[in-house]
């Protein structure tokens, strides 16, 4: 029996994942824009099939010298499972705190609350958006704090995945006129990629 199953995505499939992410991140950004009463600058989502140990490279929107905080949240639905990571540049919290009328005050516990609130909104909306387009209903697990005020390498070092390859979608949100920068990463497991590719093929053929 062949033990090494080669997972891959074609250029058409990659393009399709990118467009699906584009629509989903727009829906998520709209919610964030309404919550904070700001304009969210939308990037072009980056879709890559990578080794889990190359995760650091997928987080291109954040410098390693920056102090960051992050949460992760597992999700599963119709045979597709994965994990969402939301990582904030720590300088973001003062502005988020002002925008949410906490008067710019930040301490670790308030920061954690803000982080969880924004994570719930962005991750939930993004997964809903992806799910709607692929006809999958995702259930989300509890968000888990990865770390606060650490550098990026240390933050993701704490993760220990059982999968080796992952389909990674990176969305870097910035907010116009504010020092808010966060990276939303959707990681689909190796086993999910085959199921996802089938769904995407259906959309491509349609």
């Amino acid at each position: 029996m062949n033990q090494t199953v080669t997972v891959s995505i074609t250029e058409d499939q990659r393009d399709c994942y990118q467009e699906i992410s584009n629509v989903a991140m727009g829906q998520a950004a709209d919610l964030l824009a309404r919550l904070l009463d700001v304009k969210v600058i939308l990037p072009i989502p980056v879709v890559n099939l990578i080794e889990v140990n190359e995760l650091r490279m997928a987080l291109s929107g954040i410098e390693n010298t920056e102090s960051v905080s992050g949460v992760c949240q597992g999700f599963i639905g119709n045979g597709i499972s994965g994990e969402a990571l939301l990582i904030f540049n720590d300088t973001s919290f003062a502005d988020i705190s002002s925008l949410l009328k906490y008067g710019g005050i930040t301490d670790s516990s308030l920061e954690l609350e803000l982080l969880m609130d924004v994570a719930n909104i962005l991750i939930g909306a993004c997964l809903r958006g992806v799910g709607e387009q692929l006809d999958v209903g995702f259930s989300q697990g509890h968000p888990v704090v990865l770390g606060q005020h650490v550098n990026l390498t240390d933050l993701i070092k704490a993760k220990n995945y059982r999968w080796t390859k992952t389909l990674a979608i990176e969305i870097n949100y910035k907010i116009e006129g504010y020092d808010i920068n966060c990276d939303l990463l959707l990681l689909f497991t190796e086993d999910a990629i085959g199921v996802l590719n089938e769904k995407v093929n259906y959309l491509l053929e349609d």
């Binding site: 584009n22 629509v23 989903a24 727009g26 950004a29 304009k39």
Partner: peptide, 9 residues
Amino acid sequence: VSGDIQPEA
């Protein structure tokens, strides 16, 4: 025709 559905956009 866009995914950017923010009122500002």
